[in-house]
């Protein structure tokens, strides 16, 4: 029995003028206890998948089950075993921190006290503000409260829709540390994110673009399947360098990547020395070229360009 098993799910949104296929025949399985990531930009279909799996939205076709409960037939059971943190802040702004938590506990027929140990670590940081209205909390605090509310009924599967979007790098790191610890408690977690660097923190990831899955694998397998030579290139004139690399006959793709440009060549015999020679002739005497291992973002962009 898998935590999540989805088969051939299709979901279209139609208005009078347009029709968009948000989820285009997607199938995958997430195992129990797994931290599974849906990685993709806005519009990839991540939120739609989450809403279908949490029984908030019906698919046009296909089937899905959570711990063998069918998302259509067994929707009532599913709502008891899942915790869901939507992408948009969805708590009651005019209730206090404590009232929100109390409300969610009551809805699920439990009490804060009963499951306190599960949320203790996160809630401790909120406790000084427990009488503050949720609408008046900071972004980071809202996110932590939403996580507590999604956990208070001790769900078996947790759905987190872009919990770190718009969150600064320090808070993002802390949030992923919390997820790692929740995982050790046996909770299966599906998390979506547009930040490719977070992919490596998942057990397995699905790279999604425009409603389709580009690839599903553990992050390190996705990286090892990138069967091209990749170079990091730097020179004092980065914008000119980008243009010059793009007009190099051996270039497949070249993109800016922080302090370097990442160059994928179309010929496996090309070495860093060859690239350097070309750049010297193109007016970059100070260019540095080194062979590097790809990141998930390189892989994603490579799959997108295919």
């Amino acid at each position: 029995m898998s935590a999540v098993e989805i088969k051939n799910i299709v979901k279209k949104y139609s208005t009078k003028k347009t029709s968009v296929t948000a989820v285009d025949n997607i199938s995958f399985t997430a195992e129990r206890g797994e931290l599974f990531g849906l990685i993709g930009p806005d519009g990839a279909g991540k939120s739609t998948i989450f809403r279908i799996l949490t029984t908030l939205l019906l698919p046009d076709s296909g089937s899905a089950a959570l711990l063998d409960y069918d998302i259509i037939k067994d929707w009532k059971e599913i709502r008891n075993i899942v915790g869901y943190m939507p992408g948009r802040f969805s708590l009651y702004k005019d209730l206090t921190v404590e009232e929100n938590l109390e409300f969610f506990a009551t809805v699920f027929n439990t009490t804060i006290k009963e499951n306190y140990e599960l949320i203790e670590e996160i809630y401790k940081q909120l406790e000084p503000f427990k009488n503050r209205r949720a609408g008046k909390l900071s972004g980071g605090m809202k996110q932590k409260l939403a996580l507590c509310c999604a956990l208070i009924h001790k769900p078996k599967i947790l759905f987190l829709d872009e919990p770190t979007t718009g969150v600064d790098p320090v808070s993002r790191k802390e949030f992923w540390e919390i997820l790692k610890r929740l995982k050790t408690r046996g909770i299966s977690i599906l998390v979506s994110t547009p930040y490719m660097d977070e992919a490596k923190l998942c057990d397995r990831i699905a790279l999604i673009q425009k409603g389709k899955i580009l690839e599903i694998n553990p992050p390190k397998n996705i990286i090892s399947k990138f069967e091209r030579n990749l170079f990091a290139v730097h020179s004092p004139e980065m914008f000119k360098l980008l243009m010059d690399l793009r007009s190099y006959s051996k270039t497949e793709t070249c993109f800016a990547f922080g302090e370097n440009h990442h160059l994928v060549v179309n010929d496996s015999s090309i070495s860093a020395v060859d690239v350097k020679k070309y750049l010297e002739s193109a007016g970059h005497p100070k260019a540095t070229v080194s062979n590097i291992e790809p990141t998930i973002e390189d892989c994603f962009m490579h799959l997108m360009s295919k």
């Binding site: 993709g40 930009p41 806005d42 979007t165 547009p194 490719m196 994603f300 962009m301 997108m304």
Partner: peptide, 8 residues
């Protein structure tokens, strides 16, 4: 660029 795909 929040949420925008890596190529765009």
């Amino acid at each position: 660029t929040s949420g925008v795909d890596p190529i765009t």
